[in-house]
Amino acid sequence: MFEWLEGTPVAIWVGESLWGYPILLACHAVGLAIVVGTFVMRDLRLIGLFKGISYESLDSLRKLGWAGFVVNAISGCFLFTSQATTFASSTPFLLKISMIFLAAICAAIIQNKMRDEASAWDGAGAAAGSVRVIAMLSIALWTGAIIAGRLTAYL
């Protein structure tokens, strides 16, 4: 299946055109900064930093974070096609994808909790303990995804 994918016209354009691969990499870097940056800032607030920013107002960042996620899902799929067989058998790459999948689940849990409980956390002055743990896990997963992603190019 991955060999077939590598032979499709899209994969050949990504791999062989002068600007296909660099432009997709550039998009992937912009998306990375947006999704990791935005979600990690939200997580740091949930852990207890930036006390002047209310938990209720954090919801503003949700769409921005997911926009970065979508940019990277799309650019990532294109990048994947060009070396599908290599990526599909690369341990760091598979680790990266697993960690991103788990980080997305963390983001979904966090925003569900925030929708129901953010105003209560503002009253109490701190987020629920379970949410703080998930926020720390989220930071660890995004950091791990960056590490595994970079190592994909080397291992």
Binding site: L32, A33, I34, V36, G37, T38, V40, M41, L64, W142, I146
Partner: peptide, 8 residues
């Protein structure tokens, strides 16, 4: 990620 995330 930290630089651009906080600046965003």
């Amino acid at each position: 990620s930290l630089l651009l995330g906080s600046l965003l």
